[in-house]
């Protein structure tokens, strides 16, 4: 079943075209890693799917046009983890995570026991229960990132869009997060996460979409997307490729010789 599909998606920001004619779809059960250099258009792609940017082309959510459904209905289908870890006021962690339930609550209604259970489960999954009563703004960057991820999980949607969810996390929490996203996908949900760590992307994602200068350069399983040639052409780096436990290992080693780029 296709949760998200985009046809001929183009976006211009400030008169400059950032995305050129992107066509892709995401099915239930996929954990898609969105990779590409800085400024390639990864965040723009995620934000246009959310309806935060005006775009040309078609985006379908669950078969319905994304522009035709209301904000609240969309919030029932997609949760979003923004790249900026913004928490404006000194609220407790628990209250931040509980915000994830707000799209599901009728106006002025209080949280039900079922909502509480979802919130507790999200906090447990992101390992933030230990500081659920602390003030969120006083946490470290990585802890804050985990709290905000728990908030997105509490929204409990079929599709999760995460913009650089692993940035600022320590290795064990990075791996835990990638495992969690993989488990969500196995449960029949879909995750689209923009990533800069190619090693994590290669090891944990079921599929990668490589974007460069607003165009999809490669789309498929990690083994076919991450090759010596594409990394040289797109990132300008040389990488080590290996295998461990049946999964790909990719580790960038050095900048590629400019002369060989694109060859």
């Amino acid at each position: 079943m296709t949760l998200l599909s985009s046809t001929g998606l183009s976006v211009s920001l400030g008169g400059k075209q950032v995305l050129h004619d992107l066509t892709f779809s995401v099915a239930a059960g996929e954990f898609v890693g969105l990779i590409g250099p800085n400024g390639a258009g990864k965040s723009t792609l995620l934000r246009s799917v959310l309806g935060l940017l005006p775009f040309a082309g078609t985006i379908l959510l669950d078969g319905k046009s994304a522009t035709a459904i209301g904000a609240r209905q969309r919030a029932g289908k997609i949760a979003y983890l923004a790249q900026e870890r913004e928490i404006a006021w000194d609220v407790p962690v628990e209250a931040v995570v509980a915000l994830g339930r707000s799209p599901h609550l009728p106006s002025f209604a209080a949280l039900t026991d079922a909502d509480r259970a979802v919130i507790d489960e999200a906090m447990r999954r992101m390992d933030v229960e230990a500081f659920s009563h602390r003030i969120a703004t006083e946490l470290s960057g990585g802890e804050k990132a985990r709290v905000l991820t728990a908030r997105a999980l509490a929204q409990d949607t079929p599709l999760l869009l995460a913009d650089e969810p692993t940035a600022g996390l320590d290795p064990s929490h990075q791996i835990a997060l990638m495992r969690l996203f993989g488990n969500l996908a196995r449960d029949g949900r879909s995750v689209v996460a923009s990533l800069h760590d190619l090693g994590l992307a290669a090891r944990w994602c079921s599929r990668l979409i490589l974007i460069d200068r607003g165009r999809i350069v490669a789309d498929g399983p990690p083994e076919t997307v991450l090759t010596q040639e594409t990394l040289r052409a797109v990132y300008g780096v040389e990488a080590f490729f290996g295998d461990a436990d049946g999964a790909r290992i990719v580790h960038p080693l050095d900048l590629a010789d400019p002369g060989s780029a694109g060859s």
Binding site: L50, A71, I78, Y80, E84, E86, V91, F108
Partner: peptide, 21 residues
């Protein structure tokens, strides 16, 4: 505006993604 303002604690884009118009 109470609930919308709560959601806005996490920034306007995150609030919008939570169904706030």
């Amino acid at each position: 505006l109470g609930r919308s303002l709560d959601a806005l604690t996490l920034g306007s884009e995150t609030a919008a993604s939570m169904g706030i118009d």
